[in-house]
Nucleic acid binder design. Structure first.
Lengths: 91, 91
DNA sequence: CATGGACGTGATACTAATACCGGGATAGCA
DNA sequence: TGCTATCCCGGTATTAGTATCACGTCCATG
C-alpha cells in the first residue's frame, strides 16, 4: 500500500477536535478566528466540521493560539473522548 | 491560487521542529521511535530532516507522546528559533 | 422587501504528507 | 571480509490538506 486511508477512528477523532475548536471559538465569527490564525475560513470550517480530520500541526497550533488554547489539551481531549481525567487507568 | 507553496520560513520552521525531535530522540533508534509513535520510519526521517515541514497534527502528537515531550513546547520552540522564553514581547 | 453578513455544501485545483521500494554509506562485530 | 544495524536519499503511488469559486440558507438590519 502506498498510504492508509483514514480509519473511522481517525475521522471520529477529527470530529472531536473540530467540536472542541468550535466550542472554544464561542460567539466569535469563523472569519475572524480564521484570519487571526492565518488560515482561510473554508479550512477552519472543514476542520470544525470534521471534514479535515488530520490537519497540519502548525495549523492547529495557530488555531489554538488564536483561541487561547493549549495544544496538549486539544490533543488529549480529541484523543480521549470519554474521561480525559481518568481514562480508565484501572484494570 | 489553489494552494500556497510552503514559504522558506515554513521550511525553516519544519527544520527546527525536526531538529528538536531528533534531539529528543537521543540515542534511540529511528525505527523504535517510529514504531512507538505508530508511524513509518520513513515518515519520521522526513520529519526529522525537515523534508516534511508541516506534518499532520496527530502525527506530532503521537511523536511527542513517544518521546515524552509537550506539543506546546515543540510548537513554541519550533516557531521561535531565537529566544523561546522572551521572543521580543516588548514594544 | 432588499441587502448584507455569517454559515454551510459541493465542486475544482494543486501541493503536501504518508507509505513502500530500492540503493547506498557508515559503523560495529564475528 | 562478511554480516548486521542504522541512517540517508531517490523515486513512485495514493490520499489528504488547503484554497478558491459558486450557490444556497438563515438572520439581522435598512
Amino acid at each position: 500500500m502506498v498510504r492508509n486511508p483514514l480509519t473511522p477512528e481517525e475521522w471520529a477523532r477529527g470530529e472531536r477536535l473540530g467540536a472542541l475548536l468550535r466550542e472554544a471559538r464561542g460567539a466569535r465569527s469563523m472569519t475572524a478566528v480564521a484570519a487571526a490564525a492565518g488560515i482561510s475560513a473554508e479550512t477552519l470550517r472543514k476542520i470544525e466540521t470534521g471534514r479535515a480530520p488530520t490537519p497540519a500541526f502548525f495549523t492547529i497550533v495557530a488555531l489554538a493560539a488564536a483561541l487561547g488554547l493549549s495544544t496538549d489539551t486539544l490533543a488529549a481531549a480529541a484523543a480521549a473522548p470519554q474521561e480525559p481525567e481518568q481514562t480508565r487507568l484501572s484494570a
